[in-house]
Every structure is written in structure tokens, then in C-alpha cells.
Nucleic acid binder design. Sequence first.
DNA 1: CAGTTTGTTCATTAAATTCTGAACAATCTG
DNA 2: CAGATTGTTCAGAATTTAATGAACAAACTG
Lengths: 160, 160
Amino acid sequence: MHTALSELEKEVIDIFVRIAGVLSLPRSVGELYGILFISPEPMCIDDLMRKLNISKGSTSQGLKILRSFGAVNPVYVAGDRRDFFTAEAGLRRIVAGFVNEQIRPQLDNRKDRMARIEKLLGQEEPGRKEFIAERIERLQGWQKRANALLPFALNFIKAE
Amino acid sequence: MHTALSELEKEVIDIFVRIAGVLSLPRSVGELYGILFISPEPMCIDDLMRKLNISKGSTSQGLKILRSFGAVNPVYVAGDRRDFFTAEAGLRRIVAGFVNEQIRPQLDNRKDRMARIEKLLGQEEPGRKEFIAERIERLQGWQKRANALLPFALNFIKAE
DNA sequence: CAGTTTGTTCATTAAATTCTGAACAATCTG
DNA sequence: CAGATTGTTCAGAATTTAATGAACAAACTG
């Protein structure tokens, strides 16, 4: 079957496909969220594959990703055994979920890395050491500022 | 030749390779900026290819990208005909350049797209129209907020 | 100006990413 | 419980993206 997408649906999906690109998420994840976002009714895997013309694997995998940061909500549909979903439309919630799942894990890494770099700096030969120390300090400054920006940006998205 | 990278150099480059990934820039761009960032001396294409063990094409192309948003500064080296570069270490300047080159151009697109979507909304059948209108309004709200955040974030990076 | 040196471009190759679909496991149904 | 339905997983295919290196153009050199 091929319940073709309307022009409007295509436009909206296109927006979310681009956003997915920026966030380094697969195209199909953008498509899935996009179609759910403008669909008044909850949709199940079957609906989604047919509507978007993507495979069952992509659909299942894509929904898994969307669920992982709360971009999609499971919905009970009476008399149907299948799982239905709607798009979570609260930006705050999605962003929080995304940050916690995809961003936060990497921040720990960075601290370790920085510690290791500082240690290596000690072994550097005198000539270069001075310059390199300055650069590493600078890098730490950037990191600190980025870390400070994050909660602020989150707070910025306070409205629903 | 293979003037192997030191442990410290590898660690620092690794940081910038990750950053490149987040920004959807090629790995080699991160490598190039990373080695320049940690090198006291300006470097030319030849130095860079040897040090990073990447091709001349990648090096030239990568420097072109870095120059395009001012992440790299050309430096005159007496008695050498080749082009030398150092890393621009002012975060403010790099971010401003990046935003202007890679972000701003896309913002115009979005406006057009939104206009088109609003137009398509008019043709929607009464039942769905109400819901979809709400969603599109929401989308516009997000967009507006993102646009407001941008200059604020830029200002946040005011120190050198 | 003939011969180098240097940087860029771009068609091809290589690598990384995403999608597919069949096999499977889990759950329901009569 | 036999059969059907539903969702997940993952090896392989398809697609996308980045790297390579040879051909080229531009600028220098003697």
C-alpha cells in the first residue's frame, strides 16, 4: 500500500529530517517523528512503515531511538494489540531527554581526557611546554564555558 | 615520512575530531585544527600531511573549510614560498565565523518553508486542520525560541 | 621562458552509515 | 497448545560521505 504523503506532510517531515541531520540521527528517525508530529491519531509500526515507505527494521529501530529520549509516547488503543505512538510535543521534555541520553554520557569522557592531557603535559620539553600549557588552559576555559551554557540553554526552553 | 604524533598531540587531536563530528565536519578538519592548535610553530600543507598522514587533497580541502569560518590564520614565513597557518585561538571569532557561514544561510530557508506550510494548511480538511494548526503554531514557537537563543549564546562567549 | 614548486580540483576509491528483510522471540487467540 | 500476530535483531545490501592522488593551474626562479 502507498497512502502517499500530502504536500503538507512532506514539508513538515522535511523539517524534522533536517533537524535529525543536525543531531546526527538517522534520517528515518526524523521522518518518524515528523509524521507523528502532524498526525492527530496515534500510529503503530504498520501505519508508519506504510506511510513513510520504510522497512519494518528501520521503523522499529527508529522508534526505539525516539523512545530513548522521550520524543514519542506509547498510547493505548482499545481493541488493538499493536503498540501505538504519538509525538511528545513538549520541547522541554524532549530536549531534556536528548541531553541526558546523548550528551551527558560524553561529558564524563571529557574530564578523564583532560586529566590525561594534563599529565602528559608534564613530560613535555621546556620550549614547547609553555605554549602548550597555555593552549590547554584555553581549552579548559572553553569546556567550562560550554558546560555553563548547557543548563542555561535548557532553562531558556522553559515554556511549553 | 612519519614524524609520529606524540601521545599529547593525539589526545588533543582526538578532542577536535569529536568536535568536528558534532558539527558535521569531516574528521580531517578536526585533525587539522587540532594539530595546529597544539603546535607552537605555524605549519604548511606539507607539514600537515606528513604529521597527520593524510593526503594532499584532504589537507587542502580541510584548510579551505577552516579558513571559510576563520578557524585558521595565514602566517607569513620569511624565505618560504609556501602558505603557513596557525590556529585561530579566539573562540568568539571562530564561533561567529561558523555561525555566519554554516548556520545563517539555513535560517532563510526555514522562513520560506514555514510560509509554504502555512499556505498548505489552508487546504486542509476541517477535521484535521484544527490539530495541525496547533502543531504548526508550536513549531513556529520552537523556531522563534531557537532564534532567540542563538544571539544569546553568542554573547555568552564574550571572553577571549 | 623552461623548469620547479605549490596549492586546488575532481573523478575514483574507500570507508562509514543507514536501511532492509528474513529469522527469531514473545505474546496473544481460539 | 497450534497457529497467528507483533515487535526486535542483525547480517548483508544500498546509500551516503570522506579520502585519495593524479591532472591541472598559478606563481615563482634562475
